[in-house]
Structures are given as C-alpha cells and as structure tokens.
Design a protein around this nucleic acid. Structure first.
Lengths: 354, 354
DNA sequence: CTGAAAGCGCTAACAA
DNA sequence: TTGTTAGCGCTTTCAG
C-alpha cells in the first residue's frame, strides 16, 4: 500500500552496473581496476552508471577472487598506553600510504587473548602481522608457538622477543640507551648514581640495568649495590624507593629512573621534599613523559623511539610482503633502534659540594 | 630433484577437509557452524581432519556467502592522543565480548582522510561505524554528507557533531561539566575567576565558555571580560595567557583552564613564578592529565569520560545493528555523558587576603 | 576492445 | 543425518 522507496538496500553489484551501462561484467571490472584496454566512451558509460547507482565495490568479493586482502593485523598489549598510541600512529601513517587496512587487536596483556587475536586475524586472511607480545618471559604455550608458525604470513615484532622463536622485528637497544644515558651523567661529574629499576623478569628492566652497570664499569666506577633498587614499574613503588634513596647516609647525586611511570613517583618524592632538579638531584629517565618537561621540569630522558618504531616495523612488513611474492623464502631481519638522548640539563652536576 | 616439503602453502579449504574426512562440504560446514544435526562420530572425523590439515576457515568466503562481516570501523582524528587511546580501549573491550573485529582509521585531523576512510570501510562491507569527526565546524563537503547518508549502515558519533546531519551518538556535556566545575570554585569562595579557553570555532571551547558564564550568572557574579582569554588549545598559548593573567592589576584568585594541553602551559607559568596550587592560585582543568596529580600537584579537574564513552558508543552500535535486522527503521538516539568532577583541593580558596 | 564462463571458499536451501 | 547444488560479487583467462 505504502510507497516503495527506490530501494538501494539490496546493495548494487557489478552486475547492475553492467546492465545499466549495457556492457559485460568483465568490462566493468576492467574500468574498476584500470586493467586492460577499454574504449574511452565505454569507460565513461560505466562511470556514469557507477555514479548513478551509487555503487561501491565489495572488497570482500574481490579478496575472495584475488586472494589478497590488503589488510594487516596489529596486536598490542594495551592500546590505552600512550606509548602504543604513538607506535600505532607510525604504523597507520605508512599503512595509509600503501592503502593497507589495519585490524586492531588489544590483548590486554593477556596471552590468551593474544592467541585468540592470532586466530581471528588468520581467519580474516590478513597478509601480515605487526605485534608487540605482552611483556615478561612468560612461557609460551606450544599452541601459541604452533599457531604462529603455521600462520604462513610474515610477522614483525616490535620491541619484544618471543622465547623459543626467531622472528623478524624492530627492537630497542635498552642496554645501549641506558648506558649512553648514565654515561652522560658520569661525564657531567656524577659518581654516585642510584638506579630505580623494574623487576628483573622483564627484558627491558634487565637490559637497562646491564646498561647502567656497563656505563659505570667503562668509567671505572665501582658498583655500589646500595644504589640499586628493583621494584615494580609503577609510581607508588618508585615513590617509596626515592624516599629511601633520599634518606641514604651517602646520598647519590643522581638518580636514573629506568621507566616512565616510575619517574612520576620519583618526581613526587622530590617535590615533597622541595628538592629541585637538577640543583638538588640530577634525574635521568627512560621513555619521556612530555608533560613533565612542558611544565618546566627539564628532566633528561633516554627516549625509546615510538612512532619511528611503528613506521619501520610497517615498512619491514611491507617489504617482506613483497619479497614473499617472488621467492618462497623467509628471511630473518632484525633492526635495532638506539634510543635517543634528550639532555635537558638535568644530567648536570650542579652542586658539587656533596 | 630436491625434497618436496609437505605443501600447505595453497591454503587448505573446506573441500580438503571434506575429502579427508570422507564427508560432504555441507557436513563440514555444519560442524564448523554447529548448525543442524551431525552424528557425533562424523563430527569427530571432521575435527580430526581439521586438526591434521591445520585448517583455518576463511572469514572472507564466509562473509561473501552470509553477507555479514562481523567487523566495524572506528574512525578517529588522532590515535596518538591519549584521550582516544582510552576511548578505543573501551571500544575494544565491548567489541571483544561480541566477537567483532575492528578496522581502525586515523584521519590525522583531515577531512579528506575522513572521507577516504569512510569509503574504504564501506568497501570492506563493515557493519557499522564508530567515529569522532575531526573538530571544528569546518564545512562538510556535500560529497562527505552524501557518502555518510548512502552508507546504509549505522553510524555512532562520539563527542562530535556533524553539521547538517543528525546522527546517533554519545556526547559529552561540556556546558554542564564546565558549569559544575566553576560552581565548585565559586562555592569555595572564589569570585574572580579567569578562564583560559580555546578558539570559539570549536564546539568544546564554545560550550565550556557557556558553562563558565552560566555558573557565574547562577551565582550573580558579574561577568568580567578581562578575565576571559581565548587562544589556541595548546600549551604555548596558555603559557602566555597565564603570564598575562598573573600580571593583571586585579588578579583573579582562580583560573579555569578549559583544555588539557593548555593546562600544561598554565602550570609552567605558575611554576616559573614559584606560585603554588592552590595556595597562590586555584586551578581547575578540563580533561585530566594524570601525570600532574601523580607528581603531587593536586589540580582539580572536570573529566570527560573516555573509556566509558567508547564502551557506550560500542554498545549503542551493537544495539542498532541488532535492531536493523528486525525492522527497516533507523532511530535517532543520543546519549549525553556528564563529565565527572575530580576535586583535589585545588578549587579551594586558601588565601582570602587578596 | 569486449564478452562468456570458470572459479575463489563458504553457506543454505532442498532433497534424499 | 547427510549430500547436491546454486549462489555471494568479483577477477581473469580465453575467445571473439
């Protein structure tokens, strides 16, 4: 009874276009893909039909037919961590330029979800994966490893290692970063340098400690165990440790806080005691917190590259996608990025009278 | 010559499984989808074949056949902004629970990319879109509006309005948020309250100013134009404005900084002049910056909900996906979230001797 | 330059 | 319970 609306509901297909333009399916497909020769006038006819019928090609059908999806998967542990926000920014920038879609999976730091994500992406027939495995050397289930190996598509890791398996990826040289940073402190005259570190079951914490020790050794400064603090990588823990340090008999002149969240706790403790940086205590951090310097704290940082890591990872993935076409060979390629030192004066030794 | 590796390269299909298990395609499909009756023994045979051949169903083929993709698109202006990181967290949590995939598009604040993203998603035959349009009331091209309308799938907006169009979405009540916050200042005794605001071509800035004015009016405090500062929503601009404010003849006792980036500039200016919060100046912000309070600044904030907005948006989208099945009706539903007041003492009027 | 037809991998009637 | 078969929308030989 009512009026029938011109129904575009049952989505229009290439067939409708063909009919409307008075040509065959193949021809429409050709103008869609600019493949093969098509007479200019027919091309126009087709385009007109496309406009009129408001046609949008189906990537699904195309994928099935061509066996290509132009989609890659990104798996990360926590999307709400600004660190990964920047990494993804880098990824999207490159992906965009190459017309690749991104399916995002947040694993919430759970190995289980990581596995699920892998399977899901695999079903979607994505062409490659970019992932940061959740931290910790937690043992990997054989199912996980199997899934990974049977995926049959390139996987690029970003700053993480998967035990028992060798994958290509972009990694951050935590050792060198920490070493360079601590060395800057030493060169500024510091000899008593404390470190607020994370638990040693995480690779970054382990390596940053190594870097710290290495710098001391290189400059013949004896290692003093009382300056080494291990705790959780969070601000509460660092707050307590900093208070401890400030109560030390033989107080250090500098603190190397090897994690960004921990840095906040350290700053809080210093603030509470009205100590200023670097006048009263030099402070060096790992992974910057922009806000601190913007409000004028001038803390020195060792910065792991974020956006850059995403960009490079994505480029590596694209490269291996292309390679795979030619030869049936998978090559291992690992790129290590060295963190950048951002010295804001806080590494300086201002008061030498201690 | 060489050994042939057992080649699983040409990916295994449902057909291979059928052959291996000695059943028909349909049967395999049935056990895959747990649809229809299958004898227990055949089910087992099929499962064994699936394991042995390491079969992964193709979501692509399934999508083509069922006309469902279980995928939704998320379009946001800047993935590297922590605000959106949290929004996405909320989205993924709900999506996860409903087995929905997410295709992520970052528009880089560009209307052009926004349009591209829309088209791309449309080709992928996603089932719905969750988006935050880039800020500003910049005029929308008719092409954009057309695309949006012709999409034929539900779109849920998150804290943004698209001019000339009415879409469902989750919005933030900037007016109420600002009003509540400023009111808290007034109740604490403040009468001279400055506002550092953004440019008025952005809806949030406009509305937050309205909220500010409203609070003053409600408490019969005359509006003083010299306390109103409009600038860019960034820290440099806010830094300068704060310095201006601090040089004012009749200095205010409180500052309402209506944006999180701007807050940083304000804090920097206060720090430089060794003014403490709230002893020397009460400070209220819009959208918290966690780091500031962690390091002990105790700034009061009006917090727009982030993760929550993502969750609610996703739920709304799922709801409209389900509704759409039943009736061919699209209903408009707009939910407004009220920002939460996080009073950390900085709204207090500590020195009344000014 | 254009058309016909055979798939891509899977689902969903319809039969058996 | 199970098998047959006709698509889903598009690409891509192979002929014309």
């Amino acid at each position: 009874m009512g009026y029938l609306k011109e129904d575009e509901e049952m989505s229009v297909t290439i067939k409708d276009i063909a009919k409307a333009a008075g040509v065959s399916l193949a021809t429409v497909s050709r103008v869609l893909n600019r493949s093969g020769y098509v007479k200019e006038t027919t091309r126009e006819k087709v385009h007109k039909a496309i406009k009129q019928l408001n046609y949008t090609p189906s990537a699904i059908a195309r994928s099935l037919s061509t066996n290509k999806t132009n989609t890659i998967g990104v798996i990360i542990p926590e999307i709400n961590n600004p660190f990964f926000g920047e990494v993804i920014k880098g990824i999207t920038q490159i992906a965009d330029a190459h017309q690749l879609n991104i399916i995002l999976c947040d694993t919430d730091e759970s190995k289980e979800k990581e596995l699920k994500a892998l399977k899901l992406l695999s079903e979607q027939r994505i062409e490659g994966i970019l992932m940061t495995p959740t931290y910790g050397d937690a043992c990997y289930s054989s199912e996980f490893l199997n899934t990974l190996e049977n995926l049959g598509i390139p996987i690029i890791l970003m700053d993480g290692h998967i035990k028992y398996a060798n994958f290509s990826g972009v990694f951050i040289d935590h050792i060198k970063g920490a070493c360079d940073g601590v060395e800057a402190l030493i060169k500024a005259g510091h000899k008593k340098i404390a470190i607020i570190n994370g638990l040693l079951d995480s690779r970054p914490a382990k390596e940053r400690l190594i870097g710290y020790k290495k710098a001391l050794a290189m400059h013949h400064i004896p290692l003093d165990e009382k300056y080494i603090y291990d705790g959780e990588y969070n601000h509460e823990s660092a707050y307590e440790m900093t208070k401890d340090i400030l109560g030390l008999e033989d107080m250090p002149t500098a603190i190397f806080v090897s994690n960004n969240m921990a840095m906040l706790g350290c700053v809080r403790a210093l603030n509470e005691q009205k100590l200023s940086i670097p006048e009263d205590m030099a402070v060096l951090g790992f992974d910057k917190i922009d806000t601190l310097n913007i409000i004028g704290m001038n803390i020195s940082f060792i910065n792991g590259p974020t956006t850059k890591m995403g960009k490079i990872g994505m480029k590596m993935l694209i490269e291996s996608l292309e390679k795979e076409k030619d030869v049936q060979m998978r090559e291992l390629k690992q790129i290590t990025l060295i963190p950048e030192l951002q010295l804001k004066g806080s590494e300086k030794m201002v008061k030498r009278d201690r």
